[in-house]
Design a protein around this nucleic acid. Sequence first.
DNA 1: CGTTACGTTTACGTTAACGTAAAGCGCTGT
DNA 2: ACAGCGCTTTACGTTAACGTAAACGTAACG
Lengths: 143, 143
Amino acid sequence: MTQTQDTLSIRQMCDAFDVTPRSLRFYESKELLFPIREGTRRHFTKQDRARLALILRGKRFGFSLEEIRQLLNMYNRDGSNAAQLMRTLDIARARLCAMQAQQDELGLAIADLHLEMAEGQRMLTRMQQASPKTSAPTHHAAE
Amino acid sequence: MTQTQDTLSIRQMCDAFDVTPRSLRFYESKELLFPIREGTRRHFTKQDRARLALILRGKRFGFSLEEIRQLLNMYNRDGSNAAQLMRTLDIARARLCAMQAQQDELGLAIADLHLEMAEGQRMLTRMQQASPKTSAPTHHAAE
DNA sequence: CGTTACGTTTACGTTAACGTAAAGCGCTGT
DNA sequence: ACAGCGCTTTACGTTAACGTAAACGTAACG
């Protein structure tokens, strides 16, 4: 229960999260992570691990590191005062809006692409029927 | 019906599509557009306009210019042979898959962000009730 | 004939998110 | 004492999609 030394080296972090040392140092330089500095060495705490998990998720969602930094502040309740919290919420609202717009556009694009692909598929089928390279057994889009 | 001269200057294109000359020249250098070259001047045909429209749509959807170039070939049926068409369809399938994955992840992210924002909102409300700066009339999250 | 307006080419600058190389410190094993 | 490992800092390199500046052509306007 009293685990006093719950900290990872940079290499252990890399292995645990499948990132490069460069990235971790970069994130620290951008103030996304704050490992304990024992002299020159870094020690990543449980907090850092949690933050890194959120960073990686954010990246998958297409956020920039700067945006992620903003959101981390919200997740962490660093800004313990109302004004700061309100600004953070504003940022979140804006991001949310953008994300929803993007999701909608993505939906449209997906539908369009489906249509174009169907058209291409039809053309391909016609072409293959026109010039059968092999004697062509019933080759129905073999997956 | 016999509109022999249906071509736009670079400036007209820029105005029509709200892009910079630099972008158009860049797209040409990347073989996304093929304006007629009368000496040194460019003349953008109806084809170019159609392609540009697709380019801009593709960009909004998050495609890279190289990906867009591939897709333009599909839209245009340039690759009139089956092999080429199949490769193009493969690219499209991959993109489609990625797009759907991204859309799903975006959905998750949106839900998460909603939760976090709700939490932040509750905190804010508590803080405002705890320290009423003004004599505070019934100020219910005035939108 | 000079100057705007519009067009061109060439080429270096910019941002994001690292990659990669160089050079050095501190500890361990032999 | 020295090699090697793991970590460090410093700093230049990379990719995409243009921006921006320089330096020039040419056609019309006054």
